[in-house]
């Protein structure tokens, strides 16, 4: 479903060049709950950004359903991020000026013009409310992010990521800023979404305790994949993972 081929990425800071990815290959299968682990600076988040078209690789390619997406025009990539990918961040990144409901509705606001929103707002509000109820925030619709706890903010961020029914959820250390119990709750929530709704999830994490809840774990080091548990066995045949050790 989502495939990265020979990805390289180098960040430059002044005169210093840091090679973050050095020819990485990865395939994520439909319905898979994949976790990426690795030391800090191993390139996990960068990989996630490249998969989600938030950044472009220096070389290599990213495919979605065998269609290359990393070189799409800006508009096409924006649309993919709005409709196909859902992002969850370590620090939740809810917009502080908006209520919980408005934060969850943001992808829909981005999708519609003022006139378009006027006609579609009922359905979107209904879906956002349902999602917030599903993540246990039905009573927090009108609250601002500062009035929510860390766990609640992350659950709101999950609801926001799910609003447009994305095919792939990209979670960048979603439990990194939460205590163990709340982190476990979030993983449980993601697991449920993956199982019940078939959402493909790619999760970057440091926490080795929570990876057990995922179908597959890949380890990154030195800009490539060094380990792949392949515990998940989808119907489709597996491609060769060149970088797997």
């Amino acid at each position: 479903m989502l495939r990265a081929e020979n990805l390289t990425k180098t960040y430059r800071r002044h005169a210093v060049a840091v090679r973050v990815l050095t020819g990485l290959d990865l395939e994520v299968h439909t319905g898979e709950f994949l976790s990426i682990i690795g030391a800090s600076g191993s390139g996990k988040s960068t990989l996630l950004h490249l998969l989600g078209t938030l950044d472009a690789p220096d070389s290599g390619a990213v495919y979605l359903d065998d269609k290359r997406i990393d070189n799409l025009p800006t508009r096409g990539r924006d649309e993919l991020r709005n409709k196909t990918f859902g992002y969850i961040f370590q620090f939740y990144h809810l917009l502080p000026e908006l209520t919980t409901l408005d934060n969850v509705l943001m992808p829909a606001y981005i999708q519609h013009s003022v006139m378009g929103w006027w006609s579609a707002r009922g359905e979107w509000r209904k879906r956002a409310t349902e999602l917030l109820e599903k993540v246990g925030l039905g009573h927090r619709l009108k609250h601002r992010p500062r009035e929510l706890s860390g766990g609640e903010m992350q659950r709101a961020a999950v609801a926001r990521a799910l609003l447009t029914k994305p095919r792939v959820l990209l979670a960048d250390e979603p439990t990194g800023n939460l205590d163990a119990d709340t982190g476990a709750e979030i993983v449980k929530l993601l697991r449920g979404l993956n199982r019940d709704e078939g959402v493909t999830i790619v999760m970057v994490t440091h926490n080795l305790e929570i990876v057990s809840a995922t179908d597959r774990v890949v380890r990154m080091a030195g800009g490539v994949l060094t380990d792949d548990t392949r515990s998940f066995r989808p119907h489709a045949p597996r491609p060769h993972l060149a970088a797997t050790v």
Binding site: G52, R81, N82, L95, P96, Q111
Partner: peptide, 16 residues
């Protein structure tokens, strides 16, 4: 800055 990053990750265009 961060909010702008979030908006772009949610599909907002640079023009937007």
């Amino acid at each position: 800055y961060r909010d702008i990053g979030v908006l772009k990750s949610l599909g907002a265009s640079s023009g937007g």
